[in-house]
């Protein structure tokens, strides 16, 4: 299923790294057919299928929802299934693994750090009492849903970590996507776990590490606005502090 074949081509420079063989990553150039409706991922698949089967990268859904195929495309973190060649043609397209992550092989980065931080923010509904199933669903109005909905759209593609200079300089920073999940659950009317998440969210590697560069929200392919989530967490934990310290009789 391809459109009419033309002879136009486009050059892809792909950062390659084969552990045990390469001392350091280096770019390799590939000429691939240029098609108006191709995304960068299509070009990579063409390379793997027809030119060099040893090129490694992750992908699956090719519709921007599985979050596998994040890469640096000409220096910007993008989902390669959503970055069209026509945005760059006829210029060369430079593809690199997501920045700020260790490179396992070619375009495959290590997710270990994120996968360890994820459970630390307790991204699940916390309740003091579990509602029995036969009591039916919790009531949640469309407005209450709207309150956290945006922060529930994160696909864990990690483009935001690649865009965050704080994460590069301070890798212990919990980071945009995981903190957006803190906001997502804190703001859910069904949740009672805000205090449990506070220690990590407002702790030494939490929201106060963020200097509000705002690039996480710019590169987010799902408009999650992690920078906004972090600012809201800062505001609420500052208010919390005021309540506890300035007006200690007001709480507990």
């Amino acid at each position: 299923m391809t459109s009419s074949v033309s002879s136009a081509t486009i050059t892809l420079e792909v950062l390659r790294y084969r552990p045990g063989r390469d001392q350091a990553p280096a770019f390799q150039s590939f000429q691939v057919p240029y098609r108006e409706d191709w995304v960068v991922l299509d070009a990579l698949n063409y390379i793997k299928d027809q030119i060099d089967g040893s090129l490694s990268y992750r992908w699956s859904c090719r519709m921007g929802v599985c979050g596998s195929c994040g890469m640096m495309v000409n220096g910007t973190p993008r989902l390669s299934c959503a970055a069209f060649l026509k945005e760059y043609y006829p210029a060369t397209v430079r593809v690199e693994p997501l920045e700020h992550f260790p490179i396992e092989r070619d375009l495959v980065i290590s997710l270990d750090d994120f996968m360890q931080k994820l459970p630390a923010v307790r991204p699940w509904i916390v309740r003091q009492d579990d509602r029995p199933l036969d009591a039916g669903e919790y009531r949640q109005t469309p407005a209450e849903l709207d309150w956290y909905k945006q922060f529930s759209m994160c696909i864990n593609c990690l483009l935001c970590y690649s865009a965050c200079p704080v994460y590069e300089l301070e890798p212990r920073f919990i980071g945009p996507a995981a903190l957006a999940l803190v906001a997502r659950y804190n703001l859910d009317s069904r949740d009672q776990g805000r205090e449990q998440r506070q220690e990590i969210a407002a702790g030494p590697d939490g929201v106060w590490d963020c200097t509000l560069v705002g690039e996480c929200s710019t590169v987010c392919p799902k408009d999650v606005d992690p920078a906004g989530a972090i600012q809201r967490l800062k505001l609420s934990s500052a208010l919390e502090w005021v309540k506890n310290v300035v007006l200690p009789w007001g709480r507990r």
Partner: peptide, 8 residues
Amino acid sequence: HWGCPWSR
């Protein structure tokens, strides 16, 4: 109950 954001 596990938090799925169903439309309402």
